[in-house]
Amino acid sequence: MKNFLIPLISIFFFSCQQKENKIAPVSSSDSIVTKDSVTTNKIEEENKQTGDTIVLNFKDEKGFYTAEGSLDSIHPRIYLKFNNEYSGELNGKIIPTTGKGNIRFNQIIFPDNTSDGPFGMDLKINLTQKGDHIIVVGHSQMADNPFWGKFRVQLENKKQ
């Protein structure tokens, strides 16, 4: 029995040893591509919904902030966040994919935490403050049948 255990233990130790990995040195002429540099080149300029928030960073060719969002029972309100750099008139429009629906601009929150609203499916308001604004989109609680589904938002900020 003793003679049997010694070779078994020695085989076990030899099989558990890791082989040494040899890494070739990098010369100065080799280019190194990191994962971060690849992903930054592939960033698409889109305003996408993440949870209940859409951050409007990119304008399209016509100068509109456009984004697609969806309302459901988990996210009954969507928050549109954008940065206003100059005073002017803000025009907005909600276009439901179904054509009509109980959806509207509920409220706009200004950088000094004052607010205005409610509005309808169209928004026209003068912005006098610079900074981050938040627009709340949801269904009207005064009407029947809350809107659940996808919609498109267009915002245009005109200089005065």
Rank of each mutant, 00 (worst) to 15 (best):
K2S: 07
I9K: 06
S10M: 15
F12Q: 03
F13S: 15
F14A: 12
F14D: 00
F14P: 00
S15D: 09
E20N: 05
A24S: 14
P25A: 14
S27I: 06
S28Y: 03
S29L: 14
D30I: 13
V33P: 01
D36K: 06
T40K: 10
I43Q: 14
E45A: 10
E45Q: 10
E45K: 11
N47T: 02
K48F: 01
K59V: 12
K62C: 03
G63H: 03
E68F: 05
S73T: 07
S73V: 07
S73A: 15
I74G: 03
P76N: 03
N83Y: 13
N83I: 08
G88V: 09
G88K: 03
N91A: 03
T97I: 13
G99Y: 03
N102C: 12
N102R: 00
R104G: 02
F105V: 01
N106G: 07
N106W: 01
I108V: 11
I108F: 04
I109D: 14
P111C: 10
T114E: 15
F119V: 10
F119K: 08
G120E: 13
D122Q: 10
I125Y: 07
N126K: 08
G131M: 13
G138V: 02
G138Q: 01
G138D: 05
S140H: 01
Q141V: 11
A143M: 10
D144S: 11
N145L: 02
F147K: 04
G149K: 00
K150F: 02
F151W: 05
V153G: 04
N157A: 10
K158V: 01
K159E: 10
